[in-house]
Design a protein around this nucleic acid. Structure first.
Lengths: 112, 112
DNA sequence: CCCTATAGGTAGCAACGCAACCTATAGGAG
DNA sequence: CTCCTATAGGTTGCGTTGCTACCTATAGGG
């Protein structure tokens, strides 16, 4: 996947990874890798700054803990975060429809 | 549509708009607006620099003409441009599948 | 005479994701 | 005992990109 393709869509992915339950940064990385069958495997230099950004924006709330001698920062969605996630989802749907139309491809997954 | 969402996907849209037949910049803008029912209506400050970029990259070839007293620069896809368009299309499919999976939304267009 | 649509363009900015790099612990391999 | 890997956190700086704001020019209608 080309590098720039993700721009503007990363926040939604991170919020979605935190929807089910709180996770620490590394677990978010793994969750994204697993749910996308390895298609989205983000470097930590992408994950951590993005989580800081989301926390500053009040969409997620972080807390430190220590598990097995390693310090962890767990994040959970705030109310604003859930609202934002929902907005990201509808935004993605509209975006995907528009790009698909402009590219002139079948609506996907091209069953036929 | 949020500004950053388009990053990395614009080139494919422009190439697709030129696939059927050559168009000048303004016509590309209109073509995108029409095929997406107004969802993608790009400012000229986005269109023209992007076309220059694609021309520098050898994906499109431009030529000047004068129609009705107005000068026009028409662009057509090069062979490399057609290859690139095909790459953009498969890239988009994979990207859309990955993001949709990560967001945990229905495969879309959610027929059911 | 002015305004709008058409047609081209440029300069500079802000945001973003990434590469590259750094620290530290637990546990297994040798 | 030592080294390597996986886990877990982080930062700095860069390149790319699309957009805003602005500029020029013509044709045609009010």
């Amino acid at each position: 996947m080309r590098a720039e393709a993700l721009k503007g869509h990363l926040d939604g992915l991170l919020l979605a990874a935190l929807e089910e339950r709180p996770r620490h940064g590394y677990a978010v990385k793994e969750a994204l890798r697993d749910t996308t069958e390895g298609r989205i495997d983000l470097p930590t230099g992408t994950i951590y700054p993005a989580l800081h950004r989301l926390e500053r924006a009040g969409l997620i709330a972080g807390s430190w803990s220590v598990v097995g001698g390693r310090r962890r920062r767990s994040y959970e969605l705030t109310a604003a975060g859930r609202t934002a996630l929902s907005r990201e989802r509808t935004g993605w749907q509209e975006f995907a429809i528009a790009i698909t139309a402009a590219l002139g491809t079948r609506p996907w997954p091209a069953t036929s």
